[in-house]
Design a protein around this nucleic acid. Structure first.
Lengths: 190, 190
DNA sequence: ACTCTCATGTAATTAGTTACATGATTAG
DNA sequence: CTAATCATGTAACTAATTACATGAGAGT
C-alpha cells in the first residue's frame, strides 16, 4: 500500500522536472546537466551525480528520455540524453500543476547569526565576512550570466535572474551595515 | 564500516543543533519547538513533528537533554525538555565548527520563472502574483517580529532579521517591476 | 609528476516528509 | 456540533548526499 501516491509525475519540484526542463531546448549529457546546475541553476536548485545518474536511468525506463551513445575522440564516450514526446508532456504537466510555496531554505549562516548571543562579536563578524564573500561570488556569477545572455533571454528568465541579483545586493548591503555596527560595539567594549 | 563518520555531533546544520540552540535559553516542549520553527525560524530552517520527536528521543538517549513530565489541567500532559551540560557543550561545538556555505535553496517559483518560455505571459504573471503574496506574508512576519522584540534582541539577531527583511523587500520590488513589464508585453501582443 | 577536465556510474547511509493515530478542552 | 488548540508520537516511504570506483588526455 502506497502512502505517497505521487511517485513520479508527482507534484513537488524534484530533479526529474529540472532535468526535463533542461532537455526541452537541447540534448545534454549527465555531465552537462551537472554543469548547468552549478553554473546557471545554483541559485534555486542543486543536485549531485549520485542523484542525476540514477534519475536518468529511471527516466529512461519510464520512456521520458532516450540515451544515444556518442563516440568521441580524445575524450570518453558520452550518453547524449534526448527528451521524448512523453517527457515533454510530463514537463508541461509540471508547469500546469499548482505552484508550491518556497521550500525551506536552510541556512547555517542565518542560524548562527540568530544564536549570536552565545559567541563574541568577533566571531559574529567572522561569520558575516565569510557570508559576504560567498554572497559576492554568487552575485558576480548572476551579473556575469545577465550581461552575457540578456539579449537572448526570455523576459521571465530575466526576471528570475534580476530577483537573484537584487536579493544578493540587499543581503550584501545589510551584512556590510551589520559589520560596521558590530565593529563599533567591539570598540566601545574594549 | 562507516561512510559518514559524522553521525552526530557532526558538522552539518541539522535539527539537533537547532533544537539545542532553542533550549539554551529555556526549557521547551516538542510542540513549542515546532511553533518556534514556524514563527521565528521559518526564514532559515524548517522541520516537522516526524523529525522533531524522533530527534528528541535520540538526544535523550545520548544525554544531551532530559525530559520532565509536567501534568497540566485542562490540557494534555507535556514533556518539558531541558538541555544538559553535555548538550550545551555539543551546541558550543557546533558554533565553533566551520561555517557551511549556504545550502541550496530549492525554489519552485524561481525554477518556473526560468522555464517561463514554455508558457504564456499570463501564466508567468499568475506565478509572480502568487510569489508576491507569499513574500509579502513572510515580510510582514519578519517586520512584526522586529517591531515586537527589537529592544530585547542581541545585535547579531537584529542583523539576522534585517537581512531577511531587506531580501524580501528586494524580491517584492523586483517582482512588481517584472509584472509591470510583462503586462506591457501582453498588451503589445494584443 | 601532478592536477584538471571530461565522463559515467554504484553503494552505504542519512535525513527528512507525509500521513496516520489518539484524545481532551475551549471557543464560536 | 464543529473547528481549533494543545500535545505526543510512529510507520512507510522518498530523496538526497558522500564517498568510492574507473580511466583517458591535456596542460604546466
Amino acid at each position: 500500500m502506497k502512502i505517497f501516491p505521487n511517485l513520479q509525475g508527482g507534484f513537488a519540484l524534484n530533479s526529474q522536472d529540472v532535468i526535463l526542463g533542461m532537455l526541452m531546448r537541447e540534448a545534454l549529457t549527465g555531465y552537462q546537466i551537472k554543469q548547468l546546475l552549478e553554473e546557471v541553476f545554483s541559485n534555486f536548485y542543486s543536485s549531485s551525480y549520485g542523484t542525476i545518474y540514477p534519475t536518468l536511468a529511471r527516466m529512461e525506463k519510464e520512456g521520458l528520455i532516450t540515451k544515444e551513445n556518442v563516440l568521441q575522440d580524445g575524450k570518453p564516450n558520452k550518453n547524449l540524453i534526448n527528451i521524448t514526446p512523453k517527457g515533454r508532456d510530463c514537463f508541461n504537466a509540471y508547469l500546469l500543476a499548482p505552484l508550491e510555496g518556497d521550500s525551506s531554505r536552510k541556512s547555517d549562516f542565518m542560524m548562527r547569526l540568530y544564536f549570536g548571543e552565545f559567541v563574541g562579536y568577533d566571531k559574529v563578524i567572522t561569520w558575516l565576512r565569510q557570508a559576504q564573500e560567498e554572497s559576492q561570488k554568487k552575485l558576480d556569477q548572476l551579473l556575469g550570466q545577465y550581461s552575457l545572455y540578456k539579449d537572448e533571454m526570455h523576459p521571465a528568465q530575466i526576471i528570475c535572474i534580476q530577483i537573484g541579483i537584487e536579493e544578493y545586493k540587499a543581503k550584501l548591503a545589510t551584512i556590510a551595515e551589520g559589520i560596521v555596527n558590530l565593529e563599533k560595539l567591539l570598540e566601545e567594549q574594549g
